[in-house]
Nucleic acid binder design. Structure first.
Lengths: 132, 132
DNA sequence: CAGTATCCTGCTTGATACTG
DNA sequence: CAGTATCAAGCAGGATACTG
């Protein structure tokens, strides 16, 4: 059911007088362009996670970048942040419905990445070997 | 002992020879994270374009960034670059099969962006209005 | 545990000028 | 037409230390 759209991009966007900053495509891509956003969303799609659990689930993310990225995703309405008033505190992050629908939309790309990553690496080697 | 590797620092990762290229998801996302890659791929999915036509099709892209982005996409095997030995020269860019399959994998995300961009903007306004 | 605060580096991008 | 070359600015991101 998510199949019909598509051709909406260039002609229509320019015809409607949108600037590049108002372009939904660029805005969403920019949101996912961070180094960690997609990995965090994928981790949360499996189950809600606490802060520390997310750190372990997303290897190599720094505390600082995890905090910042989570706040951006929360701001965009993609996940909820729930503070449990325990001692020590625990904070649980979970996808909203909007976030879940985004993950579904990203999944085809993830699958593509897995299937074709080898081809990309091969293309890079050929390109570089050609000495350009 | 099985969870030891979770806390590697970036320095240690580099020292061990690992790069971002070793994670397919991050590598592909990084490739699309440029400010222009997706828009260029979408333009080329409509039809092959010459350099100047691409500049017009992707508003606000600078000559420099278009050159660089096209080169990266070519290097990854996503598009072909064909020089026609005319005077003045003309260069045509077209998607490879790999590039076409990537566009198909990105299309659901494009559709999602169109449908939910308003919700994201609304969430941002609420979040900012809450004074955080 | 779940963050802040601070400092610092390098990459990405833009502007501008030049070329085959 | 389709690029290259060079310079400069801004921001993303990392390391480290501190806190309620």
């Amino acid at each position: 059911m998510k199949d019909a759209p598509a051709r909406r991009t260039l002609a229509e966007i320019r015809a409607s007088g949108m600037t590049i900053e108002d372009c939904p495509i660029r805005d969403v891509i920019a949101g996912l362009s961070g180094k960690w956003s997609v990995l965090i969303l994928l981790a949360l799609e499996e189950a809600p996670h606490r802060f520390g659990a997310l750190r372990r689930a997303v290897p190599d993310v720094s505390q600082r970048m995890l905090t910042i990225t989570l706040r951006d995703l929360q701001r965009d309405g993609l996940l909820t942040r729930t503070v449990h008033p325990t001692v020590p505190p625990s904070v649980e992050y979970a996808l909203t419905e909007l976030g879940q629908s985004l993950v579904q939309a990203v999944l085809p790309l993830i699958g593509w990445a897995d299937r074709h990553h080898g081809a990309i690496r091969g293309a890079r080697r050929s390109f570089d070997a050609a000495g350009l």
